[in-house]
Computed example of a mutant assay.
Amino acid sequence: MSAEASVDPRGPRFAATVTTVVLAIVLISGWWPLLAVQTVVFALGAFGGLRMAPYSVLYRTLVAPRLRPTSEREDAAPLRFAQAVGFGFTLVGVVGYATDTLVMAQIATAFALLAAFLNAAFDFCLGCEVYPLLRRVTPRDKRA
């Protein structure tokens, strides 16, 4: 089992909280370079792994040592999928801001914000809920 097969579930909630703040600032201010940074954060988590994600690093080094240990674990695969979905929405947002297509940018950013807020405030990871549904409908073996 890899080191990333399961994670402390408090880490993704921390990351969702930071992400919520970042995306809210982007929507309020329209300062899209910050959205570009968030897009890179999502890309690192989705494609490089959660251990490489900057908010995960912050959680492990600054927050987790101050908390009581937990035996509760969460599968990393749905979390990485959620990061990939966040990457997609924020990338659309960056393209929208960069091309002066503000409605597209704001809608895409708002969707990412909604998903992050649901996780941060209610411990509901939208991407994590979609992940097993997609796994059920996606063929696992193309030889069949």
Rank of each mutant, 00 (worst) to 15 (best):
V22C: 12
T17Y: 07
Y55R: 01
D8E: 02
P9L: 06
A53K: 10
L50E: 14
R68D: 14
A16M: 06
L50K: 02
L44F: 12
A53M: 08
P54D: 14
S29I: 15
G30W: 00
G49R: 05
V26F: 10
A5R: 09
V63D: 14
L44D: 03
T20V: 07
P12T: 04
T17P: 07
P69T: 11
R66A: 15
V18H: 08
T61L: 05
I25F: 13
V63P: 13
V26G: 03
S2L: 11
A46G: 15
R66V: 08
E4G: 00
T70V: 00
V57S: 05
S29L: 01
Q38I: 10
A64C: 03
L27D: 02
F47R: 05
A3G: 08
R13Q: 11
Y55L: 06
F47E: 02
F14C: 14
P65M: 03
G45W: 07
T20Y: 04
R10P: 00
R51T: 10
L67K: 03
M52S: 03
R60S: 13
V18N: 11
S71C: 05
A43C: 15
T19H: 03
A43R: 11
S6G: 00
A64T: 14
L50N: 08
V26R: 02
L62W: 12
L62M: 15
L50V: 01
L58A: 11
S71D: 09
R51G: 03
R66G: 02
L23Q: 12
P54Y: 06
A15E: 05
S29N: 01
T20S: 15
R60W: 12
G48F: 14
W32M: 04
R73C: 04
V37W: 15
S56A: 05
W31R: 04
V7W: 00
V21H: 00
W32V: 01
T20H: 06
S2K: 10
G48C: 10
G30I: 06
A16K: 02
R10S: 00
V21I: 07
V21D: 02
V18D: 06
S6A: 06
F47N: 04
L44W: 09
L50I: 04
A24K: 01
P33F: 14
G30R: 05
W31F: 14
A36P: 02
P33N: 03
V57D: 03
V57Y: 14
S29E: 09
E72M: 07
V21T: 11
A36T: 09
T39A: 09
L34Y: 04
T20C: 13
R66L: 10
V22E: 06
T39S: 07
R73T: 12
R60F: 10
S71R: 15
R73Y: 07
F42D: 09
A24Q: 11
V57C: 11
R68E: 08
S6I: 01
I28H: 04
Y55A: 12
V26Y: 13
I28M: 04
A64R: 06
T39C: 15
L23T: 13
S71P: 10
T61C: 14
G49I: 09
V21Y: 15
P12K: 00
G11L: 04
A16Y: 01
P9W: 08
A5Y: 10
G48P: 02
R68L: 09
V41F: 04
W32Y: 08
F14E: 05
T17K: 11
A15P: 07
S56Q: 08
G49E: 10
R73S: 13
G30M: 06
T61V: 14
G49W: 09
V57K: 15
